[in-house]
Design a protein around this nucleic acid. Structure first.
Lengths: 243, 243
DNA sequence: GGGCGTCGGTACGGAAGCGGACAAAGGGGA
DNA sequence: TCCCCTTTGTCCGCTTCCGTACCGACGCCC
């Protein structure tokens, strides 16, 4: 298994751990396939494993008692979940599921906690990621409050694009409407706006980014701040082509 | 200073620490008066002290590059700030200021980090509070997305009421409009709705809660979830009358 | 190749909230 | 007491978005 530790991870957290820290994970990490809609976590249910994503996108969603929901976080190979494990909490009120199919290395939560307890370096990195995700949450809250739907959609597409391998994002409008906490037809019309500006190409079940820079410009101040903060806290994500 | 440790704290975190842990803070805690609008933290500026509030209300606000802002967290004697210190991060993109005047015990951040490093109990409690605050953020994001202004105002008044000593909350409409990320006149009309239902009494610079249960009913599913989670993670806040 | 379930496009009335502006009321200082 | 500044109340037109409904298109399965 030695070669696994030789920078073969795509997950940006695992990649940034020193060899000695990675060795503590030895034999405890298990590679797993995560199909679309795979439920990683349900509200108030203790999670058995923590996931370090190699690929694909997971979505953290919060739901109100009356059934309204909103996405509060999005995790790809930039991160892991649940951060509650890092904070020594058994369960949280969120549900986490795969938005785009992918793979991850997972580790039983008790094992992760053991590693966290014995290795300052691991603890420090995952703590910083926890902060990065909190910052993402904060900007999501801001965006929900002050930005228009099409800007929020642009933001969201950009965040997915950051974590996807190609320029395609495979999702239905229905699904995006849940993520953005808006009506489904509102997604349709917002997509048309972006498509009209040649920023994306949209067809049944798929959105393709055509003009990334243009999308960023369109999203205005909705996009960028928490990405900068991630870079500061964790560091740049090495792009796939480099790997 | 011995008597300070004898359950004299009003801060719910300090109150929940065992005597042995509290002794580690000995001599490092400094009581400080926090006037209204006192700036505890500015975006991207490292904080010098961490604050454990005895009284009053602090507000965590995030601002977009173009100057739009929204409150993402509210902290009283239920908690402390900055949680970034718990996560071993030097600075965060938020600004924190006093919304209602109060007092706190503060400790230099490096000293707090030292205590965190040497005392598992302290680290565990503050980690759990960090999670509680993240949950609050998440529900704020949800509320911003799906609830009407008057419901969000009710939620916000309830959260302030939880942390205030009496039933009065001294704030201008202008201020509340920033917290809720809405227009100032929208606050005025929303307050009139609540006042019309005899849930609150509102006059220049002050809002008084008249019917707490009614307010909770009015707020519907906007209020309650993250409070339950706080209780589960940390425990009940002992009310002032008991102290 | 026909049928059905899922997904996307569109339409329409209505409500909520914004932007902006202005007037009234309270209250502190000179 | 008067003035001025802060705070609150109100108004109007306008935009955005919702709720709801319905239809068309795609594509999978039998």
């Amino acid at each position: 298994m030695a070669d696994v530790w030789q920078g073969r991870f795509r997950n940006n957290l695992l990649r940034r751990l020193p060899e000695t820290s990675l060795e503590r994970f030895a034999g405890r990490l298990e590679r797993i396939e995560l199909p679309r809609l795979y439920q990683l976590s349900s509200p108030h249910q203790p999670m058995e494993h923590a996931y370090f994503f190699e690929n694909g996108i997971a979505s953290v969603v919060v739901r109100s008692p009356e059934g309204q929901h909103s996405e509060i976080g999005i995790i790809g190979r930039d991160g892991m979940c649940p951060t509650s494990a890092v904070l020594d909490v058994d369960a949280d009120p969120f549900s986490i599921h795969m938005q785009m199919q992918g793979q991850a290395y997972r580790i039983p939560v008790p094992d992760l906690k053991a590693v966290l307890a014995e290795d300052r370096e691991v603890h420090r990195l995952l703590s910083r990621y926890t902060q990065a995700l909190a910052v993402q949450q904060a900007y999501t809250a801001l965006s929900n409050a002050v930005h228009h739907i099409d800007e929020r959609l642009a933001r969201w597409i950009l965040m997915c694009h950051d974590r996807a391998d190609g320029s395609d994002i495979s999702l239905t409008h229905e699904f995006m409407s849940i993520m953005l906490a808006v009506r489904r037809p509102s997604v349709t019309t917002a997509l048309h706006v972006l498509e009209g500006k040649k920023l994306i190409y949209s067809e049944r079940g798929v959105v393709s980014v055509r003009n990334r820079a243009g999308l960023e410009a369109f999203a205005r101040d909705a996009y960028g701040e928490c990405e900068k903060e991630y870079e500061r806290l964790i560091g740049t994500i090495v792009s796939r082509s480099v790997i």
